[in-house]
Nucleic acid binder design. Structure first.
Lengths: 228, 228
DNA sequence: GCAAATATAATAGTAATACTATCAAATTTG
DNA sequence: CAAATTTGATAGTATTACTATTATATTTGC
């Protein structure tokens, strides 16, 4: 096995690959090195040719695993949502207070993990960066409807529904739980991006974990029942 | 003049074009037809070659106006923010009540204009669709820092600051006005996209103008001063 | 431990794209 | 009306995204 990270069988949609990369050494190398390369070059300048060189393999071999670089990126994003699903389950079980449960979910989804604390989180950290910087490029396409039919967004949707249910437990009357969750998930990515590149568009100076603080406050204020 | 839409000199950043397209007939054709073509094909499949054919011109001519299709899209997005700036000013002047002012701004930024009502809004409608579907692709790139230095995002930033000030007028103590505005602007695009392609991620069944209703409620609840 | 099946590397090649260059014809401007 | 500029027509380049072929490894079944 190439690394401990690949020991768990990933429930990633089979339409995203031609041959399951998680089952072979070259495949795992492709995944690990593509994460690094996409972070380094950005998705536009990332090519299978360059990936082939860094893993000392060939374009032809990569094409036997992935139909296109578009599908590879979708695979990586699904891999990220796999990690998040698992951690969401793990970190909220046995917590009785629905408010604390929701708080933990918001923390998981809006903050950036610290890769230095635990080495196991390195890939998750790199995947989160990819989600922040590149995800919209493969979702906002003319292919989205077909890919949705193939079930490519199921993992993401399940995370949304899980957190929406948590909101429902706290405030059963709130009308837009799904919209609130997606706007938090997508918005926090955006805010992290802005904080790095267009800081005047954020209010970053206020606090360190400002994105999380912003959303913790926003969500609890929004769902509170304000009938006096 | 090609159309009434081009009679106003646009304050669009000069680094976005090699030759100002709004000053010539071919240039205006490029703008008008590129809006249609990008909506039809999506930005990935849109090419200068195809645009050249539809305006009965050549690639070379288009390249004399725009360095790349990336810059053309940035130009169009700036054009959109020009329209919004103007309307934001126009529709909120002489309104004294800061809450109503903010409501109007939220309406302008979160709802989709109806192109059937007024023909003048057709281009703005098409531009909004481009902003919804394509904007993130040209902003979330490795070029963002250089383009920001060139002032390419100034128009957008000014809209954000204007609305952030309105929030400040309603609630001077709210700590994250800029983040709230950007999360509304980017979030409403996302919600409109989801409503069309991944409807289960939204709560679209509830109301027609659900995106606007969602944000009107969210923003006023979030900025309210809840010291009892 | 060996034959059969499969995966990979090496190489070549294609169509499309994102540009650049050249120059004559058309158009605008002074 | 002459000079300057803009455009159209054409050609060409480097890169990319992907396909095809075949010899050589490597794995797997027995």
């Amino acid at each position: 096995m190439y690394s401990i990270f690949h020991q768990i069988k990933l429930p990633i949609n089979e339409k995203l690959f031609l041959k399951d990369p998680s089952t072979t050494t070259v495949g795992q190398k492709m995944l690990d090195e593509s994460i690094l390369l996409i972070n380094e070059l950005g998705f536009e300048k990332f090519t299978f040719k360059k990936l082939a060189v860094t893993i000392s393999s060939t374009e032809a071999t990569i094409y036997r695993y992935f139909e296109s670089k578009h599908k590879l990126l979708l695979y990586l994003i699904n891999w990220y949502w796999c990690c998040i699903s698992t951690r969401l389950l793990f970190e909220t079980t046995n917590i009785i207070d629905p408010k604390i449960k929701l708080q933990k979910a918001i923390h998981l989804l809006t903050s950036i993990p610290n890769p230095k604390k635990e080495n196991l989180l390195m890939n998750e950290f790199l995947l989160k960066k990819i989600v922040i910087n590149e995800a919209s490029k493969v979702i906002q396409t003319k292919e989205v409807d077909n890919e949705n039919k193939d079930g490519v967004f199921t993992l993401y949707k399940n995370v949304v529904f899980t957190v929406a249910n948590m909101i429902n437990e706290v405030s059963p009357d709130y009308r837009f739980p799904n919209m609130l969750v997606t706007s938090m998930i997508e918005g926090s990515s955006q805010q992290h991006f802005f904080a790095e590149h267009l800081p005047r568009l954020t209010n970053a100076e206020v606090e360190k974990d400002f994105v999380e603080v912003f959303y913790q406050e926003l969500i609890f204020k929004t769902i509170q029942n304000d009938t006096i």
